[in-house]
Computed example of a mutant assay.
Amino acid sequence: NMASKQFQNILHHITNLNYAQLKKLRHEVESNIATNQVGQAIADHEESISHCPHCDSHNLNRWGMTKQGIQRFKCKS
């Protein structure tokens, strides 16, 4: 597939990068990994919220975010 070909192309060209470019590449890769881990943790948490703690309904809507950036939910029941 296209992504695999692009990845192989990137791997092939890494050997041509200088030290400064390699450090920048490492920083970008580590930043993307951290972002993906945070995104995955948030998605896992949102999936774990499956019912209203008050009435046990599964009929929930997203309802803004807390100051800390945590998704809020509102029961529609």
Rank of each mutant, 00 (worst) to 15 (best):
N1K: 12
N1Y: 11
M2V: 03
M2E: 15
M2C: 05
A3G: 07
A3M: 14
S4L: 11
S4W: 04
S4H: 05
K5A: 10
F7R: 13
Q8T: 13
Q8D: 08
N9W: 02
I10T: 12
I10P: 02
I10Y: 09
L11F: 01
H12N: 14
H12C: 06
H12Y: 11
H12S: 14
H13Y: 13
H13K: 14
I14K: 03
I14Q: 12
N16K: 11
L17H: 00
L17N: 07
L17M: 10
Y19T: 03
Y19A: 13
Q21E: 09
Q21N: 02
Q21I: 01
Q21G: 06
L22S: 02
L22G: 07
L22C: 11
K24M: 07
K24R: 09
L25H: 08
R26G: 00
R26Y: 06
H27G: 02
E28K: 10
V29P: 00
E30Y: 06
E30P: 00
E30L: 03
S31M: 05
S31A: 15
S31W: 01
N32S: 10
I33A: 02
T35M: 04
T35H: 10
T35Q: 11
N36Y: 10
Q37K: 11
V38R: 13
Q40E: 14
A41M: 09
I42D: 12
I42S: 02
D44T: 10
D44C: 00
E46G: 02
E46S: 09
E47L: 09
S48Y: 03
I49H: 05
I49D: 08
S50Y: 06
S50M: 01
H51S: 12
H51E: 11
C52N: 09
H54I: 13
H54Y: 15
H54A: 15
C55L: 07
C55W: 08
C55T: 09
S57H: 12
S57G: 09
H58R: 15
N59R: 09
N59L: 09
L60Q: 01
N61G: 10
W63Q: 12
W63M: 08
W63L: 06
G64K: 01
T66I: 13
T66E: 10
K67L: 05
Q68R: 05
Q68M: 09
Q71M: 15
Q71T: 15
Q71L: 12
F73N: 00
F73Q: 00
K74C: 14
K74Y: 10
C75V: 07
K76L: 14
K76D: 13
